[in-house]
Structures are given as C-alpha cells and as structure tokens.
Amino acid sequence: MTAALLIEQLLNGVQFGLMLFLMAAGLTLVFGVMGLINLAHGSLYMVGAFACAAVANFTGSFWIGLGASLAAAAAAGAIIEIVVIRRLYNRDHLDQVLATFALILIFSEGTRWVFGSFPLFLDVPELLSGPVSLPFGVQYSIYRLAIIVIGCLVALGLYLLITKTRLGIRIRAGESDRAMIAALGIDIRTLYTIVFALGAGLAGLAGALVGAIQSVQVGMGEPVLILAFVVIVIGGIGSIKGSLFGSLLVGLVDTMGRFLLPSFFKLFMDPSQATSVGSALASMLIYILMALVLVVKPKGLFSANA
C-alpha cells in the first residue's frame, strides 16, 4: 500500500462526504425549520441527475445540464412543497413518513415511465476529464477534485447564507421559534417553500454531480438518502455544522473502511476469506459508528439543545 493510494482514498472519502453533505444539509434544514421528515429527498437527488443527463445529452453541454439539475430539482421541490408537503407540517411523523414514501413511489415510477428502466449515462465534461498530478506522486481525477471544490463552495455559501443574509436570519428564527417568525409578520408559507426548494436544489446538484461518475438510474437516491439519515443522526438533527462534520466522518469512514479492512483481515486470514469478511464488515461500519455515537450522545454530536 503506497502513500499515493492512501491519499487518493482519503480524497475519495472527502468527495463522498461532501456529496452527502449536499443531501444532508437540505434534510436537516427542512427538519430544523419545518419539523418535517422528508423521505422523498432522495427522489429530488434523482430528479437532478435525470435532468442533468437529459439536458446534457440534448444540448451537448454538461454545464447547461448542471444548471438544469438545480432548476429542475428546486422546481420539483417547490411544487411538492406547495401541493403536498405543506399539508404535513402539523401532522405527526408517521403521516410525514407515509406521505413522503408515497411521493417516492410516484417519483420513481414516474421517472421510469418517462425515461425507461435503463440507466442514462452522463459524461464528465471535457474540461474536467482526465487526471491531475498532485504532490507525493498522486494522480487524481480532476472531476472528483472539482466536486470537492464545489462541495466546499456550497458549504461556505450555506454558512454565509445562514449567518449573513436576511433569509438566513429568518431561517434561524424559524428553527428556534416558529410562532415568533409568524409574529414578526414574515410570510411563513413563502419562507417554507424557499427553504424546501433550496434543500431540493442542493440534492439535485448532488445527484447531477454524482451522476457523471456513477450511472443515472431510478432508485439512485434512496441509498444516499439513508446515508444522509445516518449523517444527521450522527451530527444532530437541525444542525448544519453537525451535518457537515457528520458527512465528512461518514464519507471518510466508509471509504477508508472499504479500502483498509480487507487488507487488515489479510494479516491473519486467508485472502479470499479476508476479502469477504472485510467487505461485509466495511459495509456495516458507518452503522456501527452511528450506534456508538448514539450510546455517547443520543441526540447527535452537534445537537442544538444538548
């Protein structure tokens, strides 16, 4: 195992973590501000990926596709917020789970209807294709590096949005006291729609970015959604900082676990057995991590009201 390989895997972990952050940030915002658990967040990720792939294939430009993914996911988010989600704010979590599960069925099957069952392919844009040389002899994909940069920019942008803008002040007010922002005369319905669309847009962006390195297919959002849940449980519901920290932790632990565990077991097992034990354990690693966090801090590491 070389240092270069290790660094490459670490970068992969960071890249994966930042994509999880784009998902988790929206989920945690929606929960923090509106008190809603949204299972259909993964569908918005899928919508972003499909919009990007379809538009990029049609226009020949990945960048137009990327813009389309943001727009399509944000629009889809705004529409479901207005048509369905807003009726759920005053319902219990069971109703929220079921209604958003129903939305998943509608989105998944609807997408299959329009695009068919075969995966779409989305090529990495020319500008970002190929590897780049980094220190220590690391050859790393420019595209993945770009994803890391975009992820960092989004995190920074969210930080500025929440701390420095009027919208951010309203969002924070909404997190601490819903009645108060209504009393302040803020149009709460519009605020909720904007927050939901913002989260949806981030999910769509993540879907499009990841779509170029994996395939774009129905159901691609759900595994990411569940990982985002793990992130939120670890970070603490409602905390953007917690979700950033949790995302990077989950991204790194998952990637490094898959990379290192099989080699680790090879130290004292025969290779084929070590690979299967190692990969099986690696697939469970982040859930074990979540369980450990729960033992120590049942409300997550960055819980708002710890």
């Binding site: 369905v84 069925l105 509608i106 099957e109 299959r112 209807w113």
Partner: peptide
C-alpha cells in the same frame, strides 16, 4: 407502472 398509482392512493 402500478406503483405510481399506489403512490397516489397512499398519498
């Protein structure tokens, strides 16, 4: 695509 309609009914 019956799951689509199941989703609508469930909703």
């Amino acid at each position: 695509h019956w799951m689509f309609f199941l989703g609508l009914v469930l909703l």
